[in-house]
Design a protein around this nucleic acid. Sequence first.
DNA 1: ATTGCGCTTTGCAGCGCTGCAAAGGACTAT
DNA 2: ATAGTCCTTTGCAGCGCTGCAAAGCGCAAT
Lengths: 353, 353
Amino acid sequence: MRETTLRDVAELAGVSPRTVSNVVNGYARVTDATREKVERAIAQLGYRPNVLARNLATGRSGQIVVVVPYLDTPYFAELLQGIIPAARKVGYNVLVDQTDGDRDHEGELIGRGSRRFLFDGMIFSPLGLSQEDLAVRDPDLPLVVLGERSSDGTFDHVGIDDVAASTDAVAHLISLGRRRIAAIGDQPYPTGEAAQLRTQGFRAAHAAAGRPVDESLIISTARFNRADGATAMAALLDRADPPDAVFCYSDLVASGAIHALHQRGLRVPEDVAIIGYDDIEDGRYSSPTISTIQPDKRAIAQMAVDRLIKRIAGTEPVPGLDLRAEHRLIARESTLGAARASSSRPPPGTTSS
Amino acid sequence: MRETTLRDVAELAGVSPRTVSNVVNGYARVTDATREKVERAIAQLGYRPNVLARNLATGRSGQIVVVVPYLDTPYFAELLQGIIPAARKVGYNVLVDQTDGDRDHEGELIGRGSRRFLFDGMIFSPLGLSQEDLAVRDPDLPLVVLGERSSDGTFDHVGIDDVAASTDAVAHLISLGRRRIAAIGDQPYPTGEAAQLRTQGFRAAHAAAGRPVDESLIISTARFNRADGATAMAALLDRADPPDAVFCYSDLVASGAIHALHQRGLRVPEDVAIIGYDDIEDGRYSSPTISTIQPDKRAIAQMAVDRLIKRIAGTEPVPGLDLRAEHRLIARESTLGAARASSSRPPPGTTSS
DNA sequence: ATTGCGCTTTGCAGCGCTGCAAAGGACTAT
DNA sequence: ATAGTCCTTTGCAGCGCTGCAAAGCGCAAT
């Protein structure tokens, strides 16, 4: 049996197809009488508009895509948790795509491919693409970039002040009296801009305290995940002069580092203090709970959606904006110890599940 | 400037639009000569097919949707990690939707709404809908259901044998000599089928060991998350006769329970042994590492996609299948202790990030 | 009664592509 | 040379909807 169409409804209601369309879309002025007639016909036939046809006719898909490197990274999952409802509230469906941080895949997505027609705009968290790679993008694609890129003026960018946040994190470790502070997560190559900003903060905090930076304590990792965190921490502990504190570039890295410490029978924070970055839910429950930098994820999600919608509507001035969300330092057991952090009921989080 | 169309390409190449379409789709027999001509024209004009138009013409969208209750639940995130590439490999884009376990929202998605046109099929992990609610679904929607429902014959179902897995988990605790075993996560109401199967396994293991079940040790929670796990554990510890082991219905619940134990200064597993369910990455790194039931997520993802594709193609016999993936017990520190579990390097996981 | 105005409803054409089936061409067999 | 066969290419119509602008209609003002 064929799916009922606008035309079928029109016929039954005794009006033109165009009028049915008007009713369906809540358009224009339609008399209550006709509206009712049409609505009755719609109900009777169980009509539902064919979105595919509408898309072709309007040239818009009503979908936006959110592109992240990894879906199973809690930070992104939590961010999506904010983006999806925000987008839905303004009538957009969200498509999620994961790139595995692959440069080619990312390039394909922002380039002028055929999928372009499937979404009206994109919120993109690049990993494999460097700042300059972003230039190859389809200039027609409304784009909001998350994280540590800066806008070249043709798209909007939403993030937090990574340098300031990292400085806060390291200053916190210094204020606790730690002397040998390591950093895990640097990425000294073109696509490692996010990491480099954090390293910059690491240095700034040392400078502000009049401390020299021991370059050998800055450890690079390929990714910001648990496995790399554990490996890097283990390497640090193999040294003759291990650190007494570590600034990890993500909470996952911190989680891995703590795991490595525990495996060697070391205590956190007594032997080594750990601070992470992102404030994922995991860190609020782990043992010890993880001190961290909390970006305002809800704000980031909302800002990203807002900007994208405005860009899609085309009501925005061309110049791209660089927007900054708030962040704050959350000190927990992994730096303060169980006693001092005893207000260690999990603090109200941005999201929870 | 207008987007170039099939017609433009045809004109430049000096062939009919239909031929261009044939080339683009790799259809039928096209001489190398014409193909080359057309391809040159495509390249020259930078043509890309309009997916929206194709969708309307074919009546298919090339998208499938995966509906989960919560995106930021690691289990689902890890599952998606498997589903997305599997689907992409067979030419489908994946749309992800999150329902917050809301019954109405879930009902809308499987019902005969307008979004139906946006996807060719659905992989659905219900939470708010009970078995019988599933009946209201759009019968035309190719559907694969994940988790603890069983097929009513009109859709496929993929899961693991929850009763057997739960029995294994509890038998493990019993084999370690634990006497008072609690369960956290029961949901004794219509939508709690998944939970109830685990409770069933809990009982079965006791029965097999000739042990009575202390009903008061079966704790219900609204959800399978950390917060509920912590709360339930705290309640258990407030009792005069706390348990010496707990079977948690998810790793997140286990994580919350461990958090609560640590807050009271109790040790895991010395004071209370904990076993979870799902084998999320988190559990492989937490302190202690969490013993768990490991479902074969990769297999689940693959099976779900396979079945869905076959259903979409309509080449499948109507009767729905109930498919079971493998599971295994992974004993880690939270039951064995650090010493015995010292092979506690994180085992190779299904996924990692 | 006539004109003009404003609101509602309509018709037309077309979004860009593909399904279908027939037309056209080259080639083989007789 | 002619008919038959097979492969390539084409034309047509239409997927179901919306943008646009005109047509229709009721009512008020003259």
